[in-house]
Design a protein around this nucleic acid. Structure first.
Length: 540
RNA sequence: GCGGGUGUAGCUCAGUGGUAGAGCGCCACGUUGCCAACGUGGUUGUCGUGGGUUCAAGUCCCAUCACCCGCUCCA
């Protein structure tokens, strides 16, 4: 009967998005720009509704007097909107500068690409040749692999291993100056690696009209850091007390290597982030709360639990600072069956961020985090030196709060809601295309339609339309047959249509038509607004 | 970054060196009392972009851009 998304219908959805004005390729008249997308008239409404639902549910309508279901205690939520360009030191202390600023090496023979600092190897001499055998493996495996590959390169057998004379331990490729004597990690010949080339995953820009390195800055790769560097400002200015969260919605930028899959991996994207601050002793409970709370938000707005999953990261997937991370993932139709794409990550970040911004960039040192130092014992990246700890005047205790970070992608969410909503179904031999968007998210909430353009029906419909439009996104359509107008609204996800007909002129009632059930009921014209309001009320 | 595929009207696509097409959509008028009705008329093109070959290029060649698939890479 009704079919949900398959990878074939993804093409249809992409086409619908273009045709009806949800999404356009950026700069399309100039041929587009890889990794950038524009939201059209309906797309901007949909995305705004998603962001507004998030803001309302997380911040403005949050009940800060009682503990919500599943929460350890009551808590406060406030918002923030910080600049996209920040002091460059922010990104050094956050770890993005090191993590997003890589040198890459390509192999001309195998067409593979490696991170310069992740390739290592050993120098070997044999049969009058001296060369560097590279590998991506470390430790015992690295030793074994370099040995095997050295033998293979020289055409020796394993029992001739004694002919190999190793002249170095396993060292990083960064210690090698010339690649002419390097055997790439997957290569058969020497000297196939290109010189290391700089890959900057952050967008670089220049502050000031004179562009020089001293004015170099970055477009933010995440909104979170703006919250951390404003932590003390918020605490000092807004009477918040732990536990509380700071929320922010805004654009971020990353030079993704491979933008793919429609808007899923864009280079300019919008995030909806919360940094939730709590006492370290309670952080594990809050982490669990936010995982579940955020998962429920998506299901409450209509993402089916069969395509949505909450996945805890394995220990080896965790960032160096994180004590726990879970992803909320959606089985996008463009992914292979069984694969999921990330919508949101909920990370337990401990005190990494606030400490780093005071003391300098931290790195893992055994069980603990310590300021990362350079060769001279000085911090690799200096912190602000400002004491941005929290003072609890009840406990008379000054400490770094722990941070739980639910970080959601607004564009990915928008795409997931679109994919989930897209349906094609057979109605009396005709294919009906319908977006079953949650009424809160639908770009148009109600369409007002005169059944025919005579006998005063258009006038009555126009009056009702104007009244509804003051409070809700309404649409007026008097073109063509009524059936066609219903289908047009179905295709863009309008949940309700109100039709003014002959009976309306007699008793002032109208037809209320439901997008999903196709059922129609009669309603007094004055009841339309309250009914709409009731249906759009937040439920999650 | 590599390999393969694709690019023609708003959308889906046909067009095998010789006048740029179809269906759907969209607009107007008429008709029309509830699920993509009907009639009549109309609208739509830098054939992705740039160069080349040719008397002649949507079609052949080169380059380039974008999208899709697979590698590679990655919050």
């Amino acid at each position: 009967m009704t079919t949900n998304m398959s990878s074939e219908s993804m093409d249809k959805l992409v086409s619908l998005c273009k045709r009806r004005g949800f999404l356009f390729p950026s700069s399309e008249i100039y041929g587009g720009l890889n990794g950038f997308w524009d939201y059209g008239p309906l797309g901007v409404e949909l995305k705004r509704n998603i962001k507004e639902a998030w803001w309302k549910d997380m911040v403005s309508a949050h009940d800060d007097l009682d503990a919500p279901e599943g929460a350890p205690t009551a808590y406060q939520m406030v918002g923030l909107d910080c600049s996209i360009i920040m002091h460059p030191q922010v990104w050094k202390c956050s770890g993005h500068y090191d993590l997003f600023h890589d040198f890459m090496v390509d192999c001309r023979e195998t067409k593979k690409r490696y991170r310069h600092d992740q390739v290592r190897g050993r120098w070997v001499e044999a049969r009058g040749k001296k060369f560097f055998v590279a590998t991506q493996s470390g430790g015992e495996e690295g030793f074994k692999e370099t040995e095997t590959r050295a033998l293979k390169h020289l055409g020796l057998r394993s029992k001739q291993v004694d002919e190999l004379s190793w002249t170095s331990p396993l060292v990083s490729l960064t210690t090698v100056d010339s690649f002419a004597e390097v055997l790439g990690p997957d290569a058969g010949e020497l000297g196939t690696l290109t010189p290391p080339r700089e890959f900057n995953l952050m967008f670089k820009t220049f502050v000031g009209a004179l562009s020089g390195e001293e004015g170099a800055a970055f477009l933010r790769p995440e909104t979170a850091q703006g919250i951390f560097v404003n932590f003390k400002n918020v605490v000092d200015s807004s009477r918040v007390r732990l536990p509380f969260g700071i929320a922010q919605v805004g654009k971020s930028f990353r030079n993704e290597i491979t933008p793919r899959n429609f808007t899923f991996r864009s280079r300019e994207f919008e995030q909806m982030e919360i940094e939730f601050f709590c006492h370290p002793s309670q952080s594990a409970e809050w982490y669990r709360y936010w995982r579940d709370r955020r998962y429920r938000w998506y299901t409450g707005l209509g993402l089916a639990s069969s395509r949505l999953r909450l996945r805890d990261h394995d220990a080896d997937e965790l960032s160096h600072y994180s004590c726990g991370t879970a992803d909320i993932e959606y089985a996008f139709p463009f992914l292979p069956p069984g694969e999921f794409g990330e919508l949101e990550g909920i990370a337990h970040r401990g005190d990494f961020d606030l400490r780093s911004h005071r003391e300098g960039k931290l790195a893992r040192n055994g069980e603990d985090l310590a300021v990362e130092v350079d060769g001279e014992g000085k911090p690799r990246h200096r912190g602000s030196g400002k004491d941005i700890r929290y003072f609890d005047d009840q406990l008379k205790e000054r400490f770094y709060p722990h941070v739980i970070e639910p970080s959601a992608g607004a564009d990915r969410g928008t795409l997931a809601f679109l994919c989930e909503a897209f349906h094609e179904e057979q109605v009396e031999g005709e294919t009906r295309t319908v977006l079953r968007l949650h009424p809160r998210l639908a770009p148009i909430k109600v369409a007002v339609l005169p059944l025919v353009n005579k006998d005063g029906m258009p006038e009555m419909a126009a009056k009702l339309y104007k009244e509804l439009k003051r409070d809700h996104a309404a649409y007026f359509d008097d073109g063509g047959a009524i059936g066609r107008r219903y289908r047009r609204q179905d295709e863009v996800g309008t949940p309700f249509c109100v039709t003014v007909d002959g009976q309306s002129l007699v008793d002032g009632s109208v037809t209320w038509r439901d997008r999903d059930t196709l059922e129609q009921v009669r309603l007094g014209a004055a009841e339309v607004l309250p009914e709409l309001h009731r249906r759009l009320r937040a439920t999650c």
